[in-house]
Design a protein around this nucleic acid. Structure first.
Lengths: 162, 162
DNA sequence: TATAAATTGAGAATAGTTCTCAATATTGTC
DNA sequence: GACAATATTGAGAACTATTCTCAATTTATA
């Protein structure tokens, strides 16, 4: 995987092109947000991002954040994922293969995984229904390896598993 | 698939037992909500449900609806699905096999499908990560067969497909 | 019927998100 | 660099979905 620095400059170029194509500007605020987002690899929520914007004269208002993220999403730089928690998370998708998530309902840990087999079967299902898929999300919820050990999962679960 | 009437009475019994186990009551309001929900098979949102409660002296307050749905969810009668629209939808899951969704982003049509192969591969992935899955959701978004014909999808899509 | 516990509805409170609009920044042109 | 046209920003108001509060009501049980 490329270094964050290189990734960041490519992402900025990509965003600039996207914006240009729509007669929009790569303003200092948009550029700062991009900087922050592409300086780390973890999932982030709007609140996190806003917090990170409050330091270093890098203040960007909530309104601007709410306006900018959908642009980055359309540009293919980030993706919103709903992990059935209380709020949406975003993740950097640029330079990353498509992947899906496992979420531990006990500790909140997010595990990313790729599975070509599943993707292929999805395509088959779509063909069968004459459906053109443009996007998909798969989320598995349950207990991670660590929580499985430390908690009495069997008691929590009863006999149900999905 | 069993008739709605039979299904409804079974669901009521199931809910009653669930509530009893928690020292909760099957009140008239809860019973009315169950009636409404199990009188139709489609997905519904809270707003729909509240509207349906406004007729026939069946008024149930929003507060009660918000309190009751999580109970029914825990009882295994309904399921909340987030189809990336603006709000959550609920669906009757009692007497129904687990299924996943395709959502047409053009017309909003929801297509349900079951695929054992995908489910099996999910289990494999979980085993590999030592993850105990209790729940999962798979959503495919794109264009249904009808919208594919009537709209210039290729123009909308560019070259991207997921 | 009396008592204790659970439930309800109305509206207040909260939280996340979008909207409004005056002030500011940016781009392209001369 | 100055100018005009356009896009953008931030502050706070507005909006919306959801949760909370609490007095009044309902229910189960003795």
């Amino acid at each position: 995987m490329k270094s964050l620095l290189i990734q960041k400059s490519h992402a900025r170029e990509c965003f600039r092109n996207f914006l240009r194509g729509k007669n929009l500007l790569l303003t200092t605020e948009r550029s700062r947000l991009l900087d922050i987002i592409f300086s780390q690899r973890r999932h982030f929520c709007i609140y996190d991002l806003h917090q990170m914007c409050q330091v270093n004269q890098q203040k960007v208002s909530l309104a601007t954040i709410y306006r900018t993220l959908p642009l980055m999403e359309k540009a293919g730089l980030i993706r919103a994922v709903n992990l059935k928690a209380d709020n949406w998370l975003y993740e950097n998708t640029y330079f990353k293969h498509h992947h899906d998530h496992m979420v531990c309902v006990a500790c909140g840990k997010i595990i990313e995984f790729e599975n070509v087999g599943i993707e292929k079967m999805q395509s088959k299902v779509c063909k069968k229904h004459d459906f053109i898929m443009t996007e998909h999300t798969l989320e598995l919820r349950g207990y991670c390896s660590h929580c499985k050990k430390t908690r009495k999962i069997s008691a929590l679960l009863g006999s149900k598993t999905a």
